[in-house]
Computed example of a mutant assay.
Amino acid sequence: MVYDVHTVRAAIPGLAPDSARFDAPGGTQTPRPVVDAIAGTLLGPLANRGAQSPGERAAEAVVGAARAALADFVAGDPRGIVFGRSATQLTYDLSRTLAKGWGPGDEVVVTRLDHDANIRPWVRAAEAAGATVRWADFDPATGELTADHLAAALSPRTRLVAVTAASNLIGTRPDLPKIAELVRGVDALLHVDAVHYAAHTAVDLAALGADTLVCSPYKFLGPHLGVLAARPEFLETLRPDKLLPSSDRVPERFELGTLPYELLAGARAAVDFLAALDPTATGSRRERLQASFAALAGHERSLRDRLEAGLAALPGVTVRSRAARRTSTLLVTFEGHEAAEVSRRLAERGVHAPAGSFYALEASRHLGLGDGGGLRVGPAPYTTEEEADRLLEALGELLG
């Protein structure tokens, strides 16, 4: 495996040489090939999808290429790839569709580890259907969400379990295959939020045991849109609200209105960029993605180890990211210093690490941090060891 972070950085024009960015969990910077794909689509002939004019054929080709790329990205089927404005929007749409079959006595399980986008849509849908919401806690001391935590919330009345593949706040990666086995045992559905996970690990829809899964390309070097992935056979069983003349085919029946073709082209380009992170990788795009994510994981482990060692040497610093399996994202709090103030003072030094709960409100509260959360340090594929050292040096000056 080969990983050259400087080659990655050279392809990303938004990276300023006088700043260090640790805000990737909120959205990554954009490589030039992604920008070029977006611009090229808009500069060429473009129309609503069809087979008659050059613009129609161009739109059709863009959609097909994007579905194929994202299917490779999640190890799924192109016919199971749904595009939307955001993962939040797609989750709300899915929750309303599934809730048509729920009623009093049915139960939906959500977790306190999750981003609110994988909590509130299910809570609201359950309330509208008269179903019951049950909560699965995580261990605030370790950050672990285990299969036992989920098992305590399951029953024969469970219809759906919604759980994150990786916490956007503290990085925890639950054992989803084991959780999926428990969910299957009560004949329920498993919906997985892979928005944070997909930026760090090769997604495998079937291996995770997910019936449905969402991710967001702008978290992994792509443009702003959302992706829902599922087996086409499962999507065929669902009847979402749609316009009468719009297509009833899967996956088109779930896509409301005209798709943003230029963003789909950018998403395809982002997948191809990720597949080339390990320049020595060969084989199919899926195989190259797996090799590249393995190389990226090694780079991120090195960065995380460096950051954790440096943070441990600073006075009054508590790292809240403690799970055995987790991403490189670290949530940090400070004795005698508000995280928001530390973030502001870091920004004055050209180091960008935001503070907050980042919509993981339940997780922040469960950790005892209220709604304020902490300072989130989020490495990206373009983060260097020099930037990690710069962050640690700045924190040392602020806390010294």
Rank of each mutant, 00 (worst) to 15 (best):
E393V: 13
A165D: 10
T333G: 12
T91N: 07
L375H: 05
G368K: 05
L361V: 14
L375K: 04
A58I: 02
E385M: 14
G103A: 04
V62Y: 02
K100Q: 15
L228K: 02
A51V: 11
A69L: 06
T28H: 00
L243M: 13
K100A: 15
K219R: 15
L311V: 02
D139K: 08
I170S: 05
P381E: 10
P260D: 09
L228C: 02
A68F: 03
A131N: 07
D175W: 06
R344T: 10
S155T: 15
R322D: 09
L90E: 01
S216L: 04
E385D: 15
A125F: 12
L182F: 09
L289A: 11
E387C: 10
A312W: 00
P354N: 14
C215L: 15
T327A: 08
Y382Q: 00
I81N: 01
A117E: 11
P33Q: 13
P174H: 07
Y3T: 00
S53E: 05
M1Q: 08
V35F: 11
A340G: 13
A10L: 09
L213S: 11
T383N: 10
V351E: 10
A230N: 01
A202C: 03
A66E: 01
R268K: 13
I81S: 00
S95D: 12
A75T: 13
P251K: 00
L213Q: 11
P25I: 01
E338P: 08
G378P: 03
E233V: 01
Q290K: 13
T164Q: 10
L303D: 01
F83H: 05
